[in-house]
């Protein structure tokens, strides 16, 4: 039997055991890497978004050099691909997908969610973006253009959503608290706006 067709759990145990026995890696390195990976979560990206909403200079830096903008907040990007930030405006809505695999801005959002890696999302986002958005209840006005960003190569992309109305006077922590994972990929928009949409179209 082809070795690669071995049951996955057994294969992992065997590969791990051989790599450790040969001194290629250690248990401690694996544990350390898991711990470091779990430090990244959508809360990091949300902080960047909130700061971008409050400070024009930081917003400019986000759009110019997402990697530098993340590192300004102490978020480690070194070793990870460069980060690009896509700005939603009253006329353009960005939606990120990776049709070839599952490229995701992990340094600022953490592990990719299941749906981002699914065949349905990867197939549909580039062809039927408005249908995909509708599955999340995200309904765009007719005059808004959709820009689908297929993340194919060496960058990772996150969306800078629009600041929702009704958040005037909020501080950075309050703003960051309403920014979710999906808002920074573009399947949803921050809560304030979504609530308004539901008020306008209660039947949806």
């Amino acid at each position: 039997m082809n070795l690669l067709e071995t049951d996955s759990a057994a294969l992992l145990a065997a590969v791990r055991r051989v790599l450790i026995a040969k001194g290629v890696l250690t248990d401690a390195e694996i544990a350390d890497r898991i711990a470091k990976t779990e430090q990244a979560s959508p809360a990091l990206g949300a902080r960047m978004v909130a700061k971008g909403w409050l400070e024009p200079d930081y917003r400019a830096l986000l759009l110019e050099d997402g990697t530098k903008a993340a590192e300004t907040l102490g978020i480690m990007i070194r070793g990870a691909p460069p980060l690009g930030v896509l700005e939603n405006t009253p006329l353009v809505h960005n939606l990120v997908v990776c049709t070839l695999c599952s490229c995701y801005p992990r340094a600022v959002l953490g592990y990719p969610p299941f749906w981002f890696k699914s065949a349905a999302y990867r197939a549909r986002a580039v062809r039927d973006p408005r249908g995909v958005l509708a599955e999340w209840g995200t309904l765009l006005p007719d005059n808004v253009r959709v820009r689908v960003v297929d993340s194919t190569a060496d960058y990772r992309w996150m969306v800078l959503p629009q600041r929702p109305a009704g958040t005037e006077g909020w501080d950075e922590a309050q703003l960051a608290a309403i920014v979710r994972e999906g808002d920074m990929i573009g399947v949803t928009v921050p809560d304030g706006a979504r609530l308004r949409e539901k008020t306008l179209y209660p039947e949806r």
């Binding site: 580039v126 062809r127 039927d128 973006p129 408005r130 253009r145 959709v146 820009r147 689908v148 960003v149 297929d150 993340s151 194919t152 190569a153 060496d154 960058y155």
Partner: peptide, 27 residues
């Protein structure tokens, strides 16, 4: 060199909303 390249979304599929676009990194 790598480029961000914009494509008209409806032209790719022969369906979709006029004005929508797809932007992709291409070598």
């Amino acid at each position: 060199p790598l480029y961000h390249v914009r494509f008209d979304q409806p032209s790719i599929w022969g369906e979709g909303r006029s004005g929508d676009e797809v932007v992709v990194e291409i070598f």
